[in-house]
Design a protein around this nucleic acid. Structure first.
Length: 580
DNA sequence: GGAGATCTCTCCAAGATATCGACATATCT
């Protein structure tokens, strides 16, 4: 069992304990253990038979070690099974709705027997919630909207989860002799934020028509398969334990490009491309670009030759949404999209001074190893008390330490002092101007305000922008994918004012965040509003998530010049709003 | 349930905000 699965079981047990109003400290220890397992670099299955090694992990004690061993042995956790007899598995789903916590789940269950999102939706329609304490019309409306959002997104997976699954499948396939090229297609290749399923294309001598059967059998024997959905001549579909569907296609090398083009999509892009092919007297299928008249193949082996035969430059997968990319490719004016290697610094990260896991130095070393030229340490301010947020005095001490590490790095990496400061209810910030004045990177963050009406929210954010120390607006929309849409803000109004003031908009690369969607990013560019992309790393390993964010920027047609942290250190600071 | 001080017990993550119902509670980060 992999760490992620163990962590998930532990965390679900914590949720169930909370619904059953169990001991809060016991609940917390399950959550802590889940976090510890998830962020551990050691694969627990390899040390499960050695209690000493398990106990060495902070947050894992005698009881938790026994739990982990039991999970490795039996694949389940007894306490969780016990609780699931009392409650229902679908109740865990209810917790994902905005404004729903364990208390409400317990209340709905006790009073109305509601155990699932569908049952809740039905109860709302029947007006059965009105009788409950704490649930007025406003709350009910919010739930209703939450259910709609949830239904729209459910069944989809975050891109990193889909990609991790795809990589594991590909590693397995690569071990088969005669499979030598593997590419994920579909929304994964297009760099979408979420994926409904995973498409993988494979080719090589083993995929030739007369011998592909053996490779198909091998694919269908992939051990983590929980459900084999289909096994055809050159296609295998299956479902993994987490519910993710994977389609593997094993294709001869000659038609690999056509297949890749077809399975990458998007659907609308393909429709337009095929129309264009017809106008040129060709027909495009997943097997080849061929002449309509005699059916002879024009191009099939690579995408480049197919696009070229249609008079088009090769179109990066991220742009294939039928949003003008075909016209641009025809006129040779596709933008040179930003790339991961263009990013020179990550200016939003946390350390063990607040809720991060690593020291300033560890973060700096990890950033240097990634090839960055600079970072900013931006821990939380005191308003986020749970994270042990910094007050003025601690912030000053932290700045001192950050400058020390900056000196220790000897110019190989610049480490800028910064802060992720909270915007309070009145639009003020929760640290003094004197302290903020000493920071290079002040990120005013929206993320502790939520559920406010749009006008109020917008007004507060606009007021915060007027503080001359604010250089970046953090989490400008606070969108969380697959979970909650927490903030409603007039993003156009905010960007317009930010552009005037020179305040940059933050885009978060972390896969469950979508601070700015394609539309927002394009709008920012249009309005001349600067963009910074960060990972908001709480652990050295989080920095690698940058690649997902860069792909989102590519989807919005952004180039290197559109993003501030592609500039060298001095240029980056100079491009931010001038310090007062 | 974990960690740390004692050898079985003690302590353990906090403050802002919205909502509902008129002070408290649940949820959020």
């Amino acid at each position: 069992m992999d760490n992620r699965t163990i962590a998930q079981l532990l965390s679900e047990t914590a949720d169930l304990l909370e619904i059953s109003s169990g001991d809060p400290f016991r609940i917390r220890s399950y959550r802590r253990a889940a976090e510890a397992v998830e962020s551990s670099t050691i694969q627990l299955s390899t040390i499960a038979d050695d209690p000493k090694k398990l106990l060495a992990i902070p947050g894992i004690g005698k009881g938790m070690a026994a739990n982990i061993q039991e999970m490795e042995r039996a694949g389940t956790l007894p306490l969780r099974e016990e609780l699931l007899v009392k409650f229902r598995p679908s109740m865990l789903e209810l917790l994902k709705l905005p404004g729903m916590g364990p208390k409400s789940v317990a209340l709905f269950w006790d009073a109305l027997g509601i155990a699932s999102v569908d049952e809740l939706a039905a109860a709302i329609d029947q007006g059965r919630l009105n009788t409950l304490p704490r649930f007025g019309q406003k709350q009910i409306d919010k739930l209703k909207k939450g259910i709609e959002d949830y239904r729209r997104n459910s069944g989809r997976f975050l891109i990193d989860e889909a990609e991790t699954a795809a990589e594991k499948v590909m590693a397995y396939l690569r071990a088969f002799p005669g499979i030598d090229r593997l590419t994920p297609a579909g929304s994964l290749r297009r760099g979408r934020e979420t994926a409904g399923d995973v498409d993988i294309l494979a080719t090589g001598p083993a995929c030739a028509e007369d011998c592909v059967a053996a490779a198909v059998e091998y694919t269908a024997a992939y051990p983590p398969i929980s459900d084999l959905l289909a096994k055809g001549q050159n296609k295998v579909s299956f479902r993994l334990r987490n519910g993710l569907q994977v389609d593997v296609r094993l294709l001869p090398e000659a038609s690999y490009g056509a297949a890749l083009q077809y399975f990458t999509g998007s659907k609308m892009h393909n429709v337009s491309i095929r129309q264009r092919a017809l106008k040129h007297g060709y027909t495009l299928s997943e097997y080849a670009l061929a002449r309509v008249d005699d059916g002879s193949t024009v191009a099939a082996a690579t995408e480049e030759e197919i696009y070229a035969a249609l008079g088009l430059d090769w179109i990066p997968p991220e742009l294939r949404e039928n949003n003008g990319e075909i016209e641009a490719a025809a006129e040779h004016r596709l933008p040179t999209l930003i790339e991961l290697k263009d990013i020179r610094g990550d200016v939003h990260m946390h350390t063990d001074a607040t809720d991060g896991r690593n020291t300033i130095r560890e973060m700096a070393d990890a950033a240097l190893a990634r090839g960055y030229e600079y970072i900013a340490i931006t821990d939380h301010s005191k308003n986020l008390a749970m994270t042990n947020g910094l007050d003025d005095a601690r912030a000053l001490e932290h700045i001192r330490r950050i400058r020390e590490v900056d000196a220790e790095m000897g110019g190989r990496l610049r480490v800028f002092p910064g802060i992720e400061v909270d915007i309070l209810g009145d639009g003020a910030l929760d640290l003094s101007d004197e302290v903020l004045a000493q920071m290079d990177v002040v990120i005013a963050s929206v993320h502790s305000l939520f559920n406010q009406p749009m006008e109020q929210m917008t007004e507060r954010v606009l007021r915060a922008l007027e503080n001359p120390h604010v250089r970046i607006l953090g989490h400008p929309t606070g969108r969380l994918l697959l979970r909650r849409e927490a903030f409603q803000v007039d993003i156009a109004a905010v960007m317009r004012r930010a552009a005037e003031l020179g305040v940059a908009m933050e885009h978060n690369a972390y896969p469950d965040r979508l601070d700015l969607c394609d539309r927002d990013l394009r709008l920012a560019k249009e309005l001349g509003c600067r963009i910074v992309i960060n990972t908001d790393s709480h652990h050295t390993s989080h920095m690698e998530k940058m690649r997902y964010g860069v792909r989102q920027l590519r989807r919005a047609w952004l180039t290197k010049n559109d993003v501030l942290n592609t500039r060298p250190a001095e240029g980056f600071l100079a491009a931010l709003r001038p310090k007062p």
